[in-house]
Amino acid sequence: MSNYRMTLIVGGREINIPVLPAKLNVSSPGKNERVTVLDLGEVLLLRKKGLRILSWESFFPADSAPYTTGQVRDPISIIQAIQKARDSKTPVRFLITGTDLDCNIRMGIESFEYEERSGELGDLYYTIKLYEWKDISPKKIVLPKKKKKPAKTKEPVRAGKPEKKSKTYTVKKGDCLWNIAKKFYGKGSDYTKIYNANKGTIGKNPNLIYPGQVFTIP
């Protein structure tokens, strides 16, 4: 039994139980339900077990003694640490090592009482009850980031050839389509281009044009 240890981890601080209790009470009450069924009578519905409960009585000695195990610390500082965890609703961790029934359980302090007895100055006697604690806070799920696909590079839009703007010409006295074509195209025989583009203005006879008429020069 020399390796048997009971330990409380309170707020990151490891508290050794220096005087092992004469009895450690461990219970896990069932949640089974008895109901009455027509024609069958009373039946038992099996449910999941309840939370584990641990309780014991002992004392924190002011000094080391042959019956103490592990490190002996100031009883008042230990009492204050346990009270602080209880009042702040902070879970603690209870460990038993050195036996075939090793355990490591997160628990909440249900009750904690202590007293100082006459004739035993500095020793603090206590009773403690712990309930198994389960974390039910919502857990944050981190989804893997999707890899962004490289953006497709757009091919530059090739600019088309600029459209040629049609020119206009206002007929003057003495003009004919031959002379106008020669002026714009370099040869009079291309007058048909001007005529075909302005047939609605000129009419059926390409030889009859009048001053002031405006022709489109294609």
Rank of each mutant, 00 (worst) to 15 (best):
S111W: 01
V37G: 08
P162L: 01
V10Q: 04
I79H: 05
D74H: 11
V35A: 12
L143D: 06
S189A: 07
D87W: 06
Y67I: 13
G160H: 07
K140G: 05
I180F: 04
I209C: 01
S189I: 07
L124Y: 08
S111D: 11
V214T: 12
A151N: 10
G174L: 06
L8E: 04
V171D: 01
Y125K: 08
Y67F: 15
P29A: 09
I209Y: 00
I79Q: 07
K48E: 15
T192D: 12
T168W: 06
N207G: 06
K182Y: 01
K146D: 04
P162W: 00
V142K: 10
N205L: 10
Y195Q: 01
L54S: 03
T127I: 07
S189D: 10
Q83C: 10
A197F: 05
D175W: 04
E42F: 10
T127M: 09
E120M: 01
G50T: 07
S166A: 15
I128R: 03
Y4F: 12
K167A: 07
Q80L: 09
C103W: 04
F112E: 02
Y4S: 07
K172R: 15
W178R: 00
R117H: 12
W56S: 11
G108F: 09
G203Y: 03
E115C: 03
M107N: 04
A159C: 07
E132S: 00
Y169E: 01
P29M: 10
L46G: 10
T90H: 05
N3T: 13
K49I: 13
V72Q: 11
G70E: 06
R73P: 03
K165M: 03
F94E: 03
A159M: 13
K199M: 03
P162S: 02
I17C: 06
K182D: 00
V26L: 11
K187N: 15
A65M: 13
I136R: 13
S64W: 10
R86H: 14
E116C: 09
K167Y: 05
I96S: 07
N32I: 07
N25R: 11
I194C: 06
R52Y: 02
T201S: 10
I136V: 12
R106Q: 10
T201A: 12
V19L: 08
D63A: 12
N207V: 04
M1R: 05
A81H: 05
A151K: 15
Q71E: 13
Y195P: 03
K183W: 00
D123T: 08
V37Y: 07
Q213R: 09
K149R: 14
K182H: 02
F112K: 05
K165S: 07
L51K: 15
P91S: 14
K164P: 04
I109H: 03
V10A: 12
A159D: 13
A159R: 13
R47M: 12
K204P: 05
L40Y: 12
R93D: 09
Q83E: 15
T69C: 09
L143F: 11
Y185C: 04
K164E: 14
A181N: 00
C103D: 05
L8R: 08
E14V: 14
R47V: 05
P144K: 15
M107H: 05
N198I: 06
K152E: 15
K129C: 05
A85E: 09
P61C: 04
M6W: 03
I180N: 00
G119Y: 11
S27N: 12
A62V: 02
F59Q: 01
A65I: 09
I109D: 02
K173E: 15
E42H: 05
L45V: 15
T168V: 06
P91G: 12
I202V: 03
G12A: 11
S137K: 13
V37C: 08
